[in-house]
Nucleic acid binder design. Structure first.
Lengths: 352, 352
DNA sequence: TTGAAAGCGCTAACAA
DNA sequence: TTGTTAGCGCTTTCAA
């Protein structure tokens, strides 16, 4: 009632009010009082007072003293992407259930920014760092290492810390195979009718491209050299790649392997303003899953990475004592066209 | 070289090494040294030492002392959604450019969780809080208010703090009109052929529903009572609404107003496993923009909320001195089917 | 131009 | 069963 914009209550205030010492108040308030053998009644008094005065722990002070903050970091390449944002969602659930506070930040796929971001988080004494899709995981590792911060790579592997990654080779193999099998025997796909767009020189792309080549060769008997159009992780660069291709060949390939949903957006940009019929015969495989992407006007086979399993494994790894760095593969799932799957949000309670 | 997992350097270490006092070191390191009239040479020495010993400020200590942390909070309903994750992306850019550290967390559209989350962030002495789409903005306000924390509502308005919201009425009016106009004069839409799915009893939904009714009446001359199927912000509840509708009428309406991309996912779930032809005549308006949603096999007119403008306005408001709470409307944009627009990520530098 | 000293709010020995 | 005390690393008067 009286507490307008008054200063927040501290353990000293409660100490005075309760007639106990600050350390007793502290123990009661942070839950260590049972093992400090503090009388039940003393505890209750203090708890009551805390309640009435709306006491909340100053977590910066606690953090300073304990030299850890209760914050757990997740560093993403970007927020604005279903794959990464579902990581964030899943991550949050895990952190919350451990009574800690999730902090999600992005670092724009820039090695410099990645290191700076890690450094900043370390300055806040975060307890653990989950590094997703880092351009330079080992650079970030150095920073964490020298601060004694536990960390783990997700999605893109590093050489110096544990990594949990999608089985990109197997995923791309399944996807390539599915694309090829999508064409019947009466009108089979020719090797020069299947192109891969997107990706750059990172581990994931290399694996996917390798599997793409191998599978093409195995199933179609050949694999023309120019079957891969690298275009980074950028819709516009991918768009340009499609434009160039189209200009050169006068048409799109019959079948596309698209490296990620980001590159897939490049295809959308290419489609915009062009007649829908131009794409009516197209078959697409996309390494990433997006429910809307699954219902485009042509068959889109997608690969869903197992975010829940990856995050769970990452938490398991970060908790265990340090062992030599290892990579753990999580098998992704092939998703047939026109599938609307549940996501992390479906586990939240629905309120109408 | 020598610094293995050694403890981090502090201003005291540098103080000893440089022969200056801790306060001098502090001033040099936090940039206030010019106005403290510290000799250039002293500063350089200290800066050099800091560099060599990889000094980084302990932000918890600074935060404790200054009683603010340099952290700026963004509280979202959920991460896993393009609208909200593009908010996060845009927000990050703003915060970074101010030299602060963004902290993005979600609160699951649960009033209790919203308040707890705000409280936690306050315990870390965050400097400002941006509250997006809160179920109970005024509840969160109480918490912020009594901690003297500057805050602003986004997307869903509160009565007690400034709010920046999408002009839901105007957006829904445009959308409803566009849906109706999409049907030519030779086969015009009848009032009982246009239904709204999704939404619940929040400000945004009420506005949208009001505009939907008014526009229907204005353009179609009538508006049957049962034209609105509330189904919250949940794909599965929306799915069930479609199933119920379908069972009762033996078909879908010719035209749909879908309240959000989340409800749109409910429509996708309804589509899954049903023949594509069933939807070939459908016309949909969706309040939210998603590039993949824009290319579904039937016309989808979308409304894109102006995230950049909303965030920018929110920052402007939170900085200015406190004035009586006010709501600011940001006009959204109607997006024609088959549009692939740029997002916040397009401004990041592309690397191939 | 610089230093001494107090203290932000909390925790954790150690004493009592 | 509880209190005293010494910091965690930094900022900020105030004094020199």
């Amino acid at each position: 009632m009286d507490q307008r914009v008054k200063k927040k209550a501290t353990i000293y205030d409660l100490s005075v009010l309760s007639g106990s010492s600050p350390s007793t108040v502290s123990a009661v308030l942070n839950g260590t009082w049972r093992k400090r053998r503090i009388k039940e009644s003393t505890a209750q008094t203090i708890l009551g007072l805390a309640e009435r005065h709306q006491y909340t722990t100053n977590l910066q002070a606690r953090g300073l003293r304990r030299s850890r903050s209760g914050l757990v970091g997740l560093m993403l390449p970007v927020h604005d992407n279903r794959y990464f944002s579902s990581m964030a969602q899943t991550f949050e659930g895990h952190v919350r259930s451990r009574g800690q506070c999730p902090v999600v930040v992005s670092a724009s796929r820039d090695p410099e920014e990645e290191r700076r971001t890690a450094e900043t988080l370390i300055s806040y004494s975060i307890d653990q760092l989950f590094i997703v899709g880092a351009t330079d995981p080992d650079g970030v590792h150095e920073v964490c290492e020298s601060a004694g911060l536990k960390h783990v790579n997700i999605d893109l592997p590093g050489a110096k810390a544990h990594s949990v990654i999608s089985d990109n080779y197997e995923g791309a193999r399944m996807l390539t195979e599915a694309i090829i099998h999508h064409f019947g025997n009466d009108d089979p796909l020719r090797p020069d009718e299947l192109y891969l767009f997107g990706g750059r020189n990172d581990h994931a792309s290399r694996e996917r491209i390798a599997a793409f080549h191998a599978t093409k060769k195995a199933l179609l008997g050949a694999d023309p050299e120019d079957g891969v159009q690298s275009s980074g992780y950028s819709p516009d660069i991918t768009l340009r790649a499609f434009e160039v291709f189209y200009q050169r060949h006068g048409k799109l390939p019959r079948a596309l392997f698209i490296n990620s949903s980001i590159n897939m957006e490049g295809l959308l940009r290419f489609m915009a303003g062009r007649p829908a019929e131009m794409f009516s015969e197209l078959v697409v495989g996309c390494y990433d899953y997006d429910p809307f992407g699954s219902f485009l006007p042509f068959p889109v086979i997608m690969v869903r990475q197992n975010v829940e399993a990856m995050i769970a494994k990452a938490f398991a790894l970060i908790d265990e004592p340090t062992t030599p760095p290892q990579s753990f593969l999580i098998t992704p799932e092939l998703i047939q066209p026109r599938s609307a799957l549940k996501g992390p949000l479906d586990t939240l309670k629905d309120m109408a």
